[in-house]
C-alpha cells in the first residue's frame, strides 16, 4: 500500500497563486522534526551533541527541550544521530508540527501583529528561536536570516494560524504557496 501524505493547509492553499510576492509565506511539506528531551544531568552533553548534528536546525523550546528540524530526505541520518545521543529522549514530531517560512522586507512588521516577541535584530539575532504565542496559538519562532523567520505550530492549529497570518499579511501584499 502506498499512503499519500496530506498537509494541514492543503485545501487553503489549493487556490493560492504560485508566484511569490515581495513578502512571501512559503509552506514546506517535507519538514521532519523531533522533540529532544535531555534527562537530568545530561543537559550539557545533549546541547553539545545537538550542536554537532549536521543538516538540521535546533530550536530552543524550554529548559532541556528542543525541536530539531530538517528535511524529510535527510531525516534518517538525523534521526539516527539523535537516537545516539546519550541522556536524551527523542520523539518524532514531523507530522505533529507544521513549519511556515516567512520572508520579505515587511516580515518583522507583519510578525509584530502576530507575537509579542521583540524581533529587533539586537534583541532577536539570526539563529535565535523561542516558543511564544503567535497568531493566538502556541508556536516556535526562529530567525533564520535578516528578513526570514520560520514559525512552527502544532498541526491542528496550522489552518487557523495560516488563515490569520494571511489576513494580517494582506497589508503587505503577502503571498503564500507550498515550497515543494
Amino acid at each position: 500500500m502506498n499512503f499519500v501524505l496530506r498537509h494541514p493547509v492543503e485545501e487553503l492553499l489549493a487556490a493560492a497563486p504560485a508566484e511569490p510576492a515581495l513578502n512571501h509565506l512559503s509552506v514546506p511539506r517535507n519538514r521532519a522534526s523531533w522533540s529532544v528531551l535531555a534527562h537530568k544531568g545530561s543537559e550539557a552533553t545533549v546541547v553539545q551533541a545537538l550542536a554537532a548534528i549536521e543538516g538540521a536546525s535546533v530550536r530552543f523550546c524550554g529548559p532541556e527541550e528542543w525541536l530539531v528540524v530538517t528535511n524529510r530526505d535527510g531525516a534518517g541520518a538525523v534521526a539516527s544521530a539523535l537516537a545516539a545521543i546519550p541522556g536524551a529522549s527523542v520523539v518524532e514530531q514531523g507530522d505533529g508540527r507544521t513549519v511556515f517560512s516567512l520572508a520579505g522586507p515587511d516580515s518583522r512588521a507583519l510578525l509584530a501583529k502576530c507575537t509579542a516577541l521583540d524581533l529587533h535584530p539586537d534583541a532577536f539575532a539570526i539563529g535565535r528561536s523561542a516558543n511564544a504565542l503567535v497568531c493566538h496559538v502556541g508556536g516556535n519562532v526562529a530567525r533564520v536570516a535578516r528578513d526570514t523567520y520560520e514559525i512552527t505550530v502544532m498541526r491542528s492549529f496550522a489552518a487557523s494560524f495560516f488563515s490569520e497570518i494571511c489576513l494580517l499579511g494582506r497589508e503587505f501584499g503577502l503571498s503564500a504557496g507550498f515550497a515543494d
Binding site: C61, G62, P63, E65, A130, N131, A132, L133
Partner: peptide, 8 residues
C-alpha cells in the same frame, strides 16, 4: 505556568 512558552 508559562503555558505558551517553555511550559515551566
Amino acid at each position: 505556568h508559562h503555558t505558551s512558552g517553555c511550559r515551566r
